[in-house]
Amino acid sequence: MASSRILPEFELLIPQSIKEAVDLLGKLKNKASVMAGGTDVVISCTKGFGSPNVISLAEIPALDYVEYDSKSGLRIGAMATLQQVADNADVQKRYPALWKSAAINGTPQTRNMGTVVGNIMRASPSGDCICAILAIGGKVVLRGSKGKREVSIDDFYIKYRETACKSDELAVEIKIPAPAAGSCNAFARMTRTTLDLSKVNVAVRLDMSGKTVKEARVAIGAVAPTTIRLKKVEALLKGKQITDDVLQKIVETVPTEIKPIDDVRSTAEYRRDVAGIMVKRIILEALGK
């Protein structure tokens, strides 16, 4: 039995540059885990899931940026904390889904330490920022011994807690496109108490042309091994006006696209029952209704 008091022994490596970090990862492969804020890594260690080497990003300079411009969109560096993202005026204005997924994430203490990139890389099926970014769309920028590559968030999650990031790669930033005119997004989650991990979380991005949906992206978490997009729901929305009929269809369709399970937080049945309602409500919220 591991003890919540005592960390198992591990080698703490503190690279001073991205290159050094990547070299370490190349050398240690899956015998190392990367640590950003550590709000997940450290807890995993006390639960007996630690790795023999921990590579801290703490001393790599200039990774804690949150930057927006109307051309390239939003860039979130690997060490930008949840709180930094929640406090950012551009995020608040243009990406309310992302803003909310960061602002409600954990406690003030964990928001001040935990990062958005860490949330993405943690790949929990209930990860809140994951859900928001999967709906908004974006790219994870990875650096490895073979150089830099960008993976769309749509292709990033492979299976339960497994991502496209290879063991010798490091995520350096997340890129999120600037919202087009008429685009809106929103995020919501359901929890047992305010401070909790999501029973179900949902997010949408709707690109509107007047009252018609040009394009829709709908993401839902904690109802499958990874956060997923609801492709049938998106198809139902595309090219349509949002009427009660459409919404009703959506409520009925959502349960057919998810595979929830029973766990301590909720039941499969309940998740199936509320997922559609949550998607309906978040669509209305995104549209300001």
């Binding site: 919540s4 047992r192 108490t193 305010t194 909790d196 301590v264």
Partner: peptide, 24 residues
């Protein structure tokens, strides 16, 4: 309390044993 079939507590922490917090 939540138990598994072996009689082990599934929620022996504040992550999964939910008390109301101040904002609740």
């Amino acid at each position: 309390y939540a138990y598994d079939k072996m009689g082990r507590v599934l929620n022996n922490d504040f992550t999964d044993y939910k008390m109301l917090g101040p904002s609740d």
